[in-house]
Nucleic acid binder design. Sequence first.
DNA 1: CTTTGATGCAACTCGATGGTTGCACAACCT
DNA 2: AGGTTGTGCAACCATCGAGTTGCATCAAAG
Lengths: 125, 125
Amino acid sequence: MTAAESPGAADEVAGVLVALADPTRRKLLDLLAARGEVSATTLAEGLPISRQAIVKHLAVLDAAGLVSCTRVGREVRYALRPAPLDATARWMASVAADWDRRLATIKRVAEAAEQQAGQSRPPAQ
Amino acid sequence: MTAAESPGAADEVAGVLVALADPTRRKLLDLLAARGEVSATTLAEGLPISRQAIVKHLAVLDAAGLVSCTRVGREVRYALRPAPLDATARWMASVAADWDRRLATIKRVAEAAEQQAGQSRPPAQ
DNA sequence: CTTTGATGCAACTCGATGGTTGCACAACCT
DNA sequence: AGGTTGTGCAACCATCGAGTTGCATCAAAG
């Protein structure tokens, strides 16, 4: 269980990664960050795609926990939810650190082996 | 240019996000982290999919800069490349921080407005 | 030189996904 | 009541992407 901080973290992260992989979804998050609580129709005004498409994207973002919606009268306001993004950032940093560690170890071992080989026998490859 | 540290960072990040969105690709990176430099065929032995599929995934990872390949005789060894992951982690953390900032501001403004409203007229909702 | 094992390329299947349109329904405003 | 306006639902289309198979190719070993 390397580079994992809490059980089930990988699951949460997976959803966030999928959600962030789409440029339209990133744009959407951008707009939400800029304008606070906004309805889907309002979001649609600033984008070249239909409201329905946006609703679907918002559903994905909601499933990833990156967004939450509250009903206000007949409209539905969507708002940012930074926590999962932060968690994913931490997860990613930890994975990167893990890789660095492993690569350093591998390099060290390789050098040791080469040293060893140089003293006893000709290079294997 | 909010939450961006260097020009063109978003482009690099996009590739990494797409690459990481696929679970098979993540598994692949995991294997590479565990076993160092490995060829596609070797990777295929530990996974339930064909070598060709793996090669395609490795191509995506390579395009994202997460992996590099070097030819050794007749085989091609793939190795991890942590830098883009680290960059993406930083980008993500910076975006998360930006969101927090904005949300805090919005909340502050909302509270001020409510305060204002509370002094002159009864609560709107 | 022949065989063996690894790679590269291309065509194909098929499910997921981004996007659209049309319509029904609920809520707001006169 | 009656007309707007915003949502939700469902069908539908097109494309992308993951995966497969088959074959050609090229380096290494005999």
